[in-house]
Design a protein around this nucleic acid. Structure first.
Lengths: 224, 224
DNA sequence: ATAGATAGACTAGTATACAAGTAGACCAGC
DNA sequence: GCTGGTCTACTTGTATACTAGTCTATCTAT
Protein backbone atom coordinates (compact mmCIF):
# COMPACT_ATOMS: atom_id res chain seq x y z
CA UNK A 1 0.00 0.00 0.00
CA UNK A 2 1.14 3.47 -0.88
CA UNK A 3 0.93 5.65 2.22
CA UNK A 4 1.25 9.39 2.48
CA UNK A 5 2.02 12.27 4.80
CA UNK A 6 -0.56 13.53 7.20
CA UNK A 7 -1.63 17.01 6.21
CA UNK A 8 -1.33 20.00 8.58
CA UNK A 9 -4.65 20.15 10.45
CA UNK A 10 -5.92 16.82 9.21
CA UNK A 11 -7.47 14.59 11.84
CA UNK A 12 -6.30 11.00 12.12
CA UNK A 13 -9.68 9.86 10.87
CA UNK A 14 -9.64 12.06 7.78
CA UNK A 15 -6.09 10.98 7.12
CA UNK A 16 -6.96 7.31 7.32
CA UNK A 17 -10.02 7.81 5.14
CA UNK A 18 -8.12 9.70 2.48
CA UNK A 19 -5.21 7.29 2.23
CA UNK A 20 -7.42 4.20 2.25
CA UNK A 21 -9.76 5.67 -0.35
CA UNK A 22 -6.92 6.65 -2.65
CA UNK A 23 -5.34 3.23 -2.41
CA UNK A 24 -8.60 1.49 -3.16
CA UNK A 25 -9.50 3.70 -6.11
CA UNK A 26 -6.02 3.41 -7.57
CA UNK A 27 -6.20 -0.36 -7.12
CA UNK A 28 -3.05 -0.40 -5.02
CA UNK A 29 -5.33 -2.19 -2.62
CA UNK A 30 -6.76 -4.84 -4.86
CA UNK A 31 -10.41 -5.87 -4.75
CA UNK A 32 -10.83 -8.74 -2.35
CA UNK A 33 -7.87 -7.78 -0.19
CA UNK A 34 -8.29 -8.46 3.48
CA UNK A 35 -7.65 -5.35 5.53
CA UNK A 36 -7.08 -5.42 9.25
CA UNK A 37 -7.95 -2.45 11.43
CA UNK A 38 -4.99 -3.23 13.65
CA UNK A 39 -2.56 -3.60 10.79
CA UNK A 40 -3.66 -0.36 9.12
CA UNK A 41 -3.48 1.46 12.43
CA UNK A 42 0.11 0.33 12.93
CA UNK A 43 1.02 1.19 9.38
CA UNK A 44 -0.50 4.68 9.60
CA UNK A 45 0.88 5.35 13.04
CA UNK A 46 -2.49 6.01 14.64
CA UNK A 47 -4.79 3.97 16.84
CA UNK A 48 -7.60 1.70 15.79
CA UNK A 49 -10.37 4.19 16.52
CA UNK A 50 -9.82 6.67 13.68
CA UNK A 51 -8.96 3.85 11.29
CA UNK A 52 -12.13 2.07 12.22
CA UNK A 53 -14.17 5.22 11.69
CA UNK A 54 -12.65 5.63 8.24
CA UNK A 55 -13.36 2.02 7.35
CA UNK A 56 -16.97 2.40 8.41
CA UNK A 57 -17.32 5.39 6.09
CA UNK A 58 -15.86 3.45 3.21
CA UNK A 59 -18.13 0.54 3.99
CA UNK A 60 -21.10 2.87 3.83
CA UNK A 61 -19.89 3.93 0.41
CA UNK A 62 -19.81 0.26 -0.52
CA UNK A 63 -16.16 -0.16 -1.42
CA UNK A 64 -15.29 -2.00 1.76
CA UNK A 65 -17.23 -4.88 3.18
CA UNK A 66 -17.21 -5.42 6.91
CA UNK A 67 -17.98 -8.91 8.16
CA UNK A 68 -18.40 -8.74 11.92
CA UNK A 69 -15.95 -10.84 13.87
CA UNK A 70 -14.43 -12.07 10.63
CA UNK A 71 -12.72 -9.29 8.79
CA UNK A 72 -13.02 -6.42 6.37
CA UNK A 73 -12.36 -6.72 2.68
CA UNK A 74 -11.95 -4.35 -0.21
CA UNK A 75 -15.15 -4.97 -2.14
CA UNK A 76 -14.94 -6.79 -5.41
CA UNK A 77 -15.93 -4.61 -8.33
CA UNK A 78 -19.66 -4.93 -8.74
CA UNK A 79 -20.61 -4.11 -12.33
CA UNK A 80 -24.12 -3.19 -11.29
CA UNK A 81 -22.74 -0.66 -8.80
CA UNK A 82 -20.44 0.75 -11.46
CA UNK A 83 -23.36 1.11 -13.79
CA UNK A 84 -25.48 2.69 -11.10
CA UNK A 85 -22.87 5.24 -10.12
CA UNK A 86 -22.43 6.11 -13.75
CA UNK A 87 -26.19 6.50 -14.10
CA UNK A 88 -26.27 8.95 -11.19
CA UNK A 89 -23.29 10.86 -12.41
CA UNK A 90 -24.74 11.30 -15.86
CA UNK A 91 -28.07 12.53 -14.55
CA UNK A 92 -26.58 14.92 -12.06
CA UNK A 93 -23.87 16.21 -14.38
CA UNK A 94 -26.41 17.05 -17.04
CA UNK A 95 -28.73 18.87 -14.68
CA UNK A 96 -25.89 20.70 -13.02
CA UNK A 97 -24.17 21.90 -16.18
CA UNK A 98 -27.50 23.13 -17.45
CA UNK A 99 -27.84 25.19 -14.32
CA UNK A 100 -24.25 26.35 -14.59
CA UNK A 101 -25.03 27.71 -18.04
CA UNK A 102 -27.64 29.90 -16.41
CA UNK A 103 -26.05 31.11 -13.23
CA UNK A 104 -22.30 30.46 -13.26
CA UNK A 105 -20.70 33.43 -11.51
CA UNK A 106 -17.75 35.15 -13.10
CA UNK A 107 -15.19 34.19 -10.46
CA UNK A 108 -15.96 30.48 -10.72
CA UNK A 109 -15.71 30.66 -14.50
CA UNK A 110 -12.28 32.15 -13.98
CA UNK A 111 -11.36 29.22 -11.78
CA UNK A 112 -12.52 26.78 -14.44
CA UNK A 113 -10.60 28.74 -17.03
CA UNK A 114 -7.41 28.34 -15.03
CA UNK A 115 -8.12 24.67 -14.44
CA UNK A 116 -8.59 23.89 -18.13
CA UNK A 117 -5.51 25.91 -18.96
CA UNK A 118 -3.49 23.81 -16.54
CA UNK A 119 -4.91 20.63 -18.01
CA UNK A 120 -3.67 21.68 -21.41
CA UNK A 121 -0.32 22.59 -19.91
CA UNK A 122 0.21 19.27 -18.15
CA UNK A 123 -1.10 17.35 -21.10
CA UNK A 124 2.03 18.39 -22.97
CA UNK A 125 4.15 17.27 -20.07
CA UNK A 126 2.24 13.99 -19.91
CA UNK A 127 1.81 14.32 -16.18
CA UNK A 128 -1.06 11.87 -15.73
CA UNK A 129 -1.41 12.22 -11.96
CA UNK A 130 -1.64 15.99 -12.18
CA UNK A 131 -4.26 15.78 -14.89
CA UNK A 132 -6.24 13.23 -12.96
CA UNK A 133 -6.42 15.67 -10.06
CA UNK A 134 -7.34 18.52 -12.36
CA UNK A 135 -10.02 16.39 -14.00
CA UNK A 136 -11.67 15.74 -10.67
CA UNK A 137 -11.37 19.38 -9.72
CA UNK A 138 -12.90 20.42 -13.03
CA UNK A 139 -16.04 18.46 -12.33
CA UNK A 140 -16.20 19.86 -8.85
CA UNK A 141 -15.96 23.38 -10.23
CA UNK A 142 -18.92 22.80 -12.54
CA UNK A 143 -20.99 21.89 -9.49
CA UNK A 144 -19.64 24.92 -7.71
CA UNK A 145 -20.63 27.11 -10.65
CA UNK A 146 -24.18 25.84 -10.24
CA UNK A 147 -24.10 26.30 -6.47
CA UNK A 148 -24.37 22.56 -5.85
CA UNK A 149 -21.18 21.76 -3.99
CA UNK A 150 -22.93 19.59 -1.45
CA UNK A 151 -24.46 17.54 -4.22
CA UNK A 152 -20.97 16.91 -5.50
CA UNK A 153 -19.76 15.81 -2.08
CA UNK A 154 -22.70 13.49 -1.60
CA UNK A 155 -22.34 11.87 -4.96
CA UNK A 156 -18.57 11.60 -4.74
CA UNK A 157 -18.72 8.70 -2.33
CA UNK A 158 -20.90 6.80 -4.75
CA UNK A 159 -18.59 7.72 -7.61
CA UNK A 160 -15.78 5.75 -6.01
CA UNK A 161 -17.14 2.68 -7.78
CA UNK A 162 -16.95 4.44 -11.10
CA UNK A 163 -13.54 5.94 -10.32
CA UNK A 164 -12.10 2.55 -9.56
CA UNK A 165 -12.93 1.08 -12.95
CA UNK A 166 -11.75 4.26 -14.59
CA UNK A 167 -8.37 3.25 -13.25
CA UNK A 168 -8.74 -0.01 -15.14
CA UNK A 169 -9.97 1.65 -18.28
CA UNK A 170 -7.71 1.74 -21.29
CA UNK A 171 -8.89 5.24 -22.03
CA UNK A 172 -6.58 7.29 -19.82
CA UNK A 173 -7.18 10.68 -18.39
CA UNK A 174 -4.16 11.84 -20.34
CA UNK A 175 -6.17 11.53 -23.48
CA UNK A 176 -6.27 14.65 -25.59
CA UNK A 177 -9.97 14.21 -26.21
CA UNK A 178 -10.83 14.42 -22.53
CA UNK A 179 -9.12 17.75 -22.14
CA UNK A 180 -10.69 18.99 -25.32
CA UNK A 181 -14.12 18.06 -23.96
CA UNK A 182 -13.43 20.12 -20.89
CA UNK A 183 -12.43 23.10 -22.97
CA UNK A 184 -15.63 22.82 -24.99
CA UNK A 185 -17.78 22.49 -21.90
CA UNK A 186 -16.25 25.62 -20.50
CA UNK A 187 -16.99 27.52 -23.69
CA UNK A 188 -20.57 26.26 -23.69
CA UNK A 189 -21.05 27.46 -20.12
CA UNK A 190 -19.59 30.84 -20.93
CA UNK A 191 -21.93 31.09 -23.91
CA UNK A 192 -24.87 29.91 -21.81
CA UNK A 193 -25.50 27.23 -24.41
CA UNK A 194 -27.38 24.56 -22.48
CA UNK A 195 -28.08 22.19 -25.34
CA UNK A 196 -24.43 21.96 -26.33
CA UNK A 197 -23.32 21.64 -22.72
CA UNK A 198 -25.66 18.73 -22.03
CA UNK A 199 -24.66 17.09 -25.28
CA UNK A 200 -21.00 17.41 -24.34
CA UNK A 201 -21.55 15.80 -20.94
CA UNK A 202 -23.24 12.88 -22.60
CA UNK A 203 -20.41 12.49 -25.09
CA UNK A 204 -17.76 12.97 -22.44
CA UNK A 205 -19.04 10.28 -20.12
CA UNK A 206 -19.43 7.98 -23.07
CA UNK A 207 -15.69 8.15 -23.57
CA UNK A 208 -14.90 6.12 -20.53
CA UNK A 209 -15.64 3.03 -22.49
CA UNK A 210 -15.76 0.50 -19.80
CA UNK A 211 -15.37 -2.70 -21.64
CA UNK A 212 -16.54 -4.96 -18.89
CA UNK A 213 -15.91 -8.15 -20.80
CA UNK A 214 -12.32 -7.23 -21.50
CA UNK A 215 -11.62 -6.02 -17.98
CA UNK A 216 -13.08 -9.18 -16.58
CA UNK A 217 -10.89 -11.23 -18.84
CA UNK A 218 -7.75 -9.40 -17.78
CA UNK A 219 -8.57 -9.34 -14.08
CA UNK A 220 -11.23 -11.94 -13.35
CA UNK A 221 -10.29 -11.94 -9.66
CA UNK A 222 -11.31 -8.29 -9.27
CA UNK A 223 -14.93 -8.82 -10.17
CA UNK A 224 -17.98 -10.04 -8.40
CA UNK B 1 -36.00 13.22 23.17
CA UNK B 2 -38.12 10.29 22.14
CA UNK B 3 -36.04 7.13 22.42
CA UNK B 4 -36.85 3.66 21.18
CA UNK B 5 -36.10 -0.01 21.58
CA UNK B 6 -33.00 -1.54 20.13
CA UNK B 7 -33.90 -3.91 17.34
CA UNK B 8 -32.89 -7.59 17.34
CA UNK B 9 -29.56 -7.71 15.54
CA UNK B 10 -29.03 -3.98 15.44
CA UNK B 11 -25.58 -2.79 16.44
CA UNK B 12 -25.28 -0.04 19.02
CA UNK B 13 -24.01 2.27 16.31
CA UNK B 14 -26.95 1.67 13.97
CA UNK B 15 -29.30 2.04 16.89
CA UNK B 16 -27.82 5.38 17.90
CA UNK B 17 -27.86 6.59 14.32
CA UNK B 18 -31.46 5.63 13.76
CA UNK B 19 -32.81 7.15 16.95
CA UNK B 20 -30.82 10.35 16.59
CA UNK B 21 -31.82 10.74 12.96
CA UNK B 22 -35.50 10.20 13.68
CA UNK B 23 -35.46 12.70 16.50
CA UNK B 24 -33.76 15.32 14.38
CA UNK B 25 -36.04 14.86 11.38
CA UNK B 26 -39.15 14.91 13.56
CA UNK B 27 -37.84 18.06 15.24
CA UNK B 28 -38.02 16.45 18.67
CA UNK B 29 -34.42 17.52 18.77
CA UNK B 30 -34.74 21.13 17.79
CA UNK B 31 -32.31 22.84 15.46
CA UNK B 32 -29.53 24.44 17.47
CA UNK B 33 -29.78 21.96 20.34
CA UNK B 34 -26.49 21.07 21.96
CA UNK B 35 -25.95 17.35 22.04
CA UNK B 36 -23.38 15.71 24.22
CA UNK B 37 -21.82 12.39 23.26
CA UNK B 38 -21.63 11.42 26.90
CA UNK B 39 -25.19 12.38 27.65
CA UNK B 40 -26.58 10.54 24.64
CA UNK B 41 -24.49 7.50 25.48
CA UNK B 42 -25.93 7.42 28.99
CA UNK B 43 -29.45 7.95 27.71
CA UNK B 44 -29.18 5.17 25.13
CA UNK B 45 -27.44 2.81 27.46
CA UNK B 46 -24.36 2.35 25.29
CA UNK B 47 -20.85 3.73 25.37
CA UNK B 48 -19.51 6.84 23.70
CA UNK B 49 -17.91 5.00 20.79
CA UNK B 50 -21.02 3.92 18.85
CA UNK B 51 -22.74 7.21 19.66
CA UNK B 52 -19.77 9.09 18.39
CA UNK B 53 -19.73 7.03 15.19
CA UNK B 54 -23.40 7.81 14.64
CA UNK B 55 -22.87 11.51 15.25
CA UNK B 56 -20.03 11.57 12.74
CA UNK B 57 -22.33 10.04 10.14
CA UNK B 58 -25.00 12.61 10.80
CA UNK B 59 -22.41 15.36 10.65
CA UNK B 60 -21.34 14.08 7.25
CA UNK B 61 -24.97 14.34 6.18
CA UNK B 62 -24.89 17.91 7.41
CA UNK B 63 -27.63 17.81 10.02
CA UNK B 64 -25.24 17.84 12.94
CA UNK B 65 -22.36 20.23 13.31
CA UNK B 66 -19.31 19.13 15.25
CA UNK B 67 -17.13 21.82 16.73
CA UNK B 68 -13.98 20.13 17.97
CA UNK B 69 -13.36 20.51 21.69
CA UNK B 70 -16.49 22.63 21.98
CA UNK B 71 -19.59 20.63 21.25
CA UNK B 72 -21.95 19.21 18.68
CA UNK B 73 -25.15 20.87 17.65
CA UNK B 74 -28.20 19.94 15.65
CA UNK B 75 -27.70 22.07 12.56
CA UNK B 76 -29.97 25.01 12.02
CA UNK B 77 -32.15 24.59 8.97
CA UNK B 78 -30.21 25.92 6.03
CA UNK B 79 -32.63 26.95 3.29
CA UNK B 80 -29.96 26.54 0.64
CA UNK B 81 -29.42 22.94 1.76
CA UNK B 82 -33.14 22.31 1.70
CA UNK B 83 -33.33 23.68 -1.79
CA UNK B 84 -30.34 21.63 -2.88
CA UNK B 85 -31.70 18.38 -1.52
CA UNK B 86 -34.98 19.11 -3.24
CA UNK B 87 -33.11 19.78 -6.46
CA UNK B 88 -31.38 16.42 -6.25
CA UNK B 89 -34.52 14.61 -5.37
CA UNK B 90 -36.44 16.06 -8.27
CA UNK B 91 -33.74 15.20 -10.76
CA UNK B 92 -33.25 11.68 -9.50
CA UNK B 93 -36.93 10.92 -9.04
CA UNK B 94 -37.69 11.93 -12.61
CA UNK B 95 -34.91 9.87 -14.10
CA UNK B 96 -35.73 6.89 -11.92
CA UNK B 97 -39.45 6.84 -12.58
CA UNK B 98 -38.76 7.07 -16.28
CA UNK B 99 -36.61 4.00 -15.98
CA UNK B 100 -39.20 2.28 -13.83
CA UNK B 101 -41.72 2.76 -16.63
CA UNK B 102 -39.41 0.74 -18.84
CA UNK B 103 -38.17 -2.04 -16.66
CA UNK B 104 -40.25 -2.33 -13.48
CA UNK B 105 -40.54 -6.04 -12.74
CA UNK B 106 -43.89 -7.53 -11.93
CA UNK B 107 -43.15 -8.41 -8.32
CA UNK B 108 -42.05 -4.90 -7.42
CA UNK B 109 -45.13 -3.47 -9.05
CA UNK B 110 -47.12 -5.77 -6.82
CA UNK B 111 -45.30 -4.39 -3.81
CA UNK B 112 -46.11 -0.84 -4.88
CA UNK B 113 -49.70 -1.87 -5.43
CA UNK B 114 -49.94 -3.12 -1.88
CA UNK B 115 -48.23 -0.01 -0.57
CA UNK B 116 -50.63 2.37 -2.28
CA UNK B 117 -53.54 0.28 -1.17
CA UNK B 118 -52.39 0.60 2.42
CA UNK B 119 -51.96 4.34 2.01
CA UNK B 120 -55.57 4.60 0.93
CA UNK B 121 -56.59 2.41 3.82
CA UNK B 122 -54.79 4.41 6.50
CA UNK B 123 -55.84 7.66 4.94
CA UNK B 124 -59.38 6.85 6.02
CA UNK B 125 -58.14 6.09 9.49
CA UNK B 126 -56.13 9.33 9.52
CA UNK B 127 -53.07 7.50 10.80
CA UNK B 128 -50.46 10.09 9.86
CA UNK B 129 -47.42 8.23 11.17
CA UNK B 130 -48.32 5.10 9.25
CA UNK B 131 -48.84 7.06 6.06
CA UNK B 132 -45.57 8.89 6.54
CA UNK B 133 -43.79 5.55 6.68
CA UNK B 134 -45.67 4.27 3.66
CA UNK B 135 -44.87 7.46 1.75
CA UNK B 136 -41.17 6.95 2.31
CA UNK B 137 -41.46 3.30 1.40
CA UNK B 138 -43.35 4.18 -1.76
CA UNK B 139 -40.50 6.30 -3.01
CA UNK B 140 -38.03 3.60 -2.14
CA UNK B 141 -40.04 1.08 -4.12
CA UNK B 142 -39.94 3.27 -7.21
CA UNK B 143 -36.17 3.20 -7.02
CA UNK B 144 -36.27 -0.52 -6.46
CA UNK B 145 -38.46 -0.93 -9.52
CA UNK B 146 -35.77 0.82 -11.54
CA UNK B 147 -33.01 -1.25 -9.93
CA UNK B 148 -31.49 1.80 -8.24
CA UNK B 149 -31.74 0.97 -4.55
CA UNK B 150 -28.24 2.16 -3.80
CA UNK B 151 -29.02 5.50 -5.38
CA UNK B 152 -31.92 5.80 -2.99
CA UNK B 153 -29.73 5.00 -0.01
CA UNK B 154 -27.09 7.48 -1.05
CA UNK B 155 -29.53 10.28 -1.62
CA UNK B 156 -31.50 9.54 1.53
CA UNK B 157 -28.86 11.07 3.78
CA UNK B 158 -29.04 14.27 1.80
CA UNK B 159 -32.84 14.17 1.87
CA UNK B 160 -32.78 14.53 5.65
CA UNK B 161 -32.67 18.28 5.11
CA UNK B 162 -35.77 18.12 2.99
CA UNK B 163 -37.49 15.68 5.33
CA UNK B 164 -36.96 17.98 8.28
CA UNK B 165 -38.78 20.90 6.72
CA UNK B 166 -41.47 18.57 5.49
CA UNK B 167 -42.20 18.08 9.17
CA UNK B 168 -42.70 21.83 9.44
CA UNK B 169 -44.80 22.06 6.32
CA UNK B 170 -48.48 22.79 6.61
CA UNK B 171 -49.18 20.38 3.80
CA UNK B 172 -49.30 17.11 5.68
CA UNK B 173 -48.62 13.67 4.42
CA UNK B 174 -52.20 12.83 5.32
CA UNK B 175 -53.36 14.93 2.45
CA UNK B 176 -55.65 13.14 0.04
CA UNK B 177 -53.83 14.64 -2.92
CA UNK B 178 -50.54 13.06 -1.95
CA UNK B 179 -52.00 9.59 -1.91
CA UNK B 180 -53.82 10.27 -5.15
CA UNK B 181 -50.52 11.26 -6.75
CA UNK B 182 -49.02 7.98 -5.70
CA UNK B 183 -51.91 6.05 -7.19
CA UNK B 184 -51.53 7.91 -10.47
CA UNK B 185 -47.78 7.35 -10.55
CA UNK B 186 -48.32 3.66 -10.07
CA UNK B 187 -50.78 3.56 -12.95
CA UNK B 188 -48.36 5.47 -15.17
CA UNK B 189 -45.60 2.99 -14.41
CA UNK B 190 -47.87 0.06 -15.13
CA UNK B 191 -48.84 1.67 -18.42
CA UNK B 192 -45.21 2.46 -19.20
CA UNK B 193 -46.23 6.06 -19.72
CA UNK B 194 -43.02 7.97 -19.11
CA UNK B 195 -44.28 11.45 -19.97
CA UNK B 196 -47.15 11.25 -17.52
CA UNK B 197 -44.95 9.71 -14.84
CA UNK B 198 -42.37 12.47 -15.07
CA UNK B 199 -45.09 15.09 -15.08
CA UNK B 200 -46.59 13.56 -11.95
CA UNK B 201 -43.28 13.62 -10.11
CA UNK B 202 -42.89 17.27 -10.92
CA UNK B 203 -46.40 18.03 -9.72
CA UNK B 204 -46.03 15.85 -6.65
CA UNK B 205 -42.86 17.48 -5.40
CA UNK B 206 -44.39 20.86 -6.06
CA UNK B 207 -47.03 20.06 -3.47
CA UNK B 208 -44.65 20.30 -0.57
CA UNK B 209 -45.01 24.01 -0.70
CA UNK B 210 -42.31 25.05 1.60
CA UNK B 211 -43.26 28.54 2.47
CA UNK B 212 -39.91 29.57 3.83
CA UNK B 213 -41.04 33.04 4.83
CA UNK B 214 -43.92 31.69 6.88
CA UNK B 215 -41.85 28.96 8.53
CA UNK B 216 -39.18 31.45 9.42
CA UNK B 217 -41.77 33.68 10.96
CA UNK B 218 -43.20 30.89 13.07
CA UNK B 219 -39.87 29.44 14.11
CA UNK B 220 -37.15 32.02 13.53
CA UNK B 221 -34.83 30.23 15.94
CA UNK B 222 -34.76 27.11 13.73
CA UNK B 223 -33.21 28.81 10.73
CA UNK B 224 -29.78 29.86 9.71
C1' DA C 1 -14.29 48.98 39.20
C1' DT C 2 -12.05 46.75 35.61
C1' DA C 3 -8.84 43.98 33.00
C1' DG C 4 -6.24 39.94 33.03
C1' DA C 5 -4.78 35.51 34.89
C1' DT C 6 -6.25 31.13 36.39
C1' DA C 7 -8.62 27.05 37.66
C1' DG C 8 -12.14 23.91 36.74
C1' DA C 9 -15.62 21.72 34.08
C1' DC C 10 -16.81 20.81 30.03
C1' DT C 11 -15.85 19.24 24.91
C1' DA C 12 -14.21 16.06 20.95
C1' DG C 13 -10.06 13.30 19.37
C1' DT C 14 -7.39 9.47 20.18
C1' DA C 15 -5.55 5.40 22.48
C1' DT C 16 -6.14 1.28 24.80
C1' DA C 17 -8.58 -2.57 27.08
C1' DC C 18 -11.92 -5.93 27.01
C1' DA C 19 -15.87 -8.82 25.10
C1' DA C 20 -17.85 -11.78 21.79
C1' DG C 21 -17.55 -14.35 17.88
C1' DT C 22 -15.16 -16.74 13.76
C1' DA C 23 -11.92 -19.68 11.29
C1' DG C 24 -8.46 -22.79 11.02
C1' DA C 25 -4.88 -25.77 12.89
C1' DC C 26 -4.34 -29.62 15.51
C1' DC C 27 -5.22 -33.77 17.79
C1' DA C 28 -7.90 -37.66 19.68
C1' DG C 29 -10.84 -41.29 18.76
C1' DC C 30 -12.86 -44.22 15.63
C1' DG D 1 -8.18 -41.88 6.43
C1' DC D 2 -11.82 -39.46 8.37
C1' DT D 3 -14.69 -37.11 11.74
C1' DG D 4 -15.44 -34.11 15.43
C1' DG D 5 -14.03 -31.44 19.30
C1' DT D 6 -10.88 -28.03 21.22
C1' DC D 7 -7.63 -24.57 21.47
C1' DT D 8 -5.40 -20.61 19.50
C1' DA D 9 -5.11 -16.65 17.07
C1' DC D 10 -7.25 -13.78 14.81
C1' DT D 11 -11.41 -10.48 13.76
C1' DT D 12 -14.82 -6.55 14.75
C1' DG D 13 -17.87 -4.34 18.46
C1' DT D 14 -17.98 -1.90 22.57
C1' DA D 15 -16.31 0.27 26.75
C1' DT D 16 -13.17 3.01 29.09
C1' DA D 17 -9.03 5.91 29.81
C1' DC D 18 -6.35 9.54 28.49
C1' DT D 19 -5.08 14.00 25.78
C1' DA D 20 -5.63 18.42 24.38
C1' DG D 21 -8.33 22.31 23.57
C1' DT D 22 -12.29 25.71 24.74
C1' DC D 23 -15.28 28.26 27.55
C1' DT D 24 -16.71 30.35 31.80
C1' DA D 25 -16.59 31.90 36.24
C1' DT D 26 -13.93 33.55 39.77
C1' DC D 27 -10.13 35.66 41.80
C1' DT D 28 -6.27 38.79 41.74
C1' DA D 29 -3.77 42.86 40.71
C1' DT D 30 -3.89 47.34 39.29
Amino acid sequence: MHTSERLPRETARDFAFRVLRDNIVSLDLKPGTLISENEIAMEFGVSRTPVREAIIDLAKAGIIEILPQRGSYVSLIDPSMVEESRFVRKILDKAVIELACEIAPKDVIDEIEENVHLQEFYLEKEDADRIYMLDNQFHYLIYKAAGKETTYDMSSTMMLHFDRVRTLSVETVKDLKIVKDHREMLEAIKAGDKETAVFLVEKHLGRYKLDEAQMKQEHPEYFK
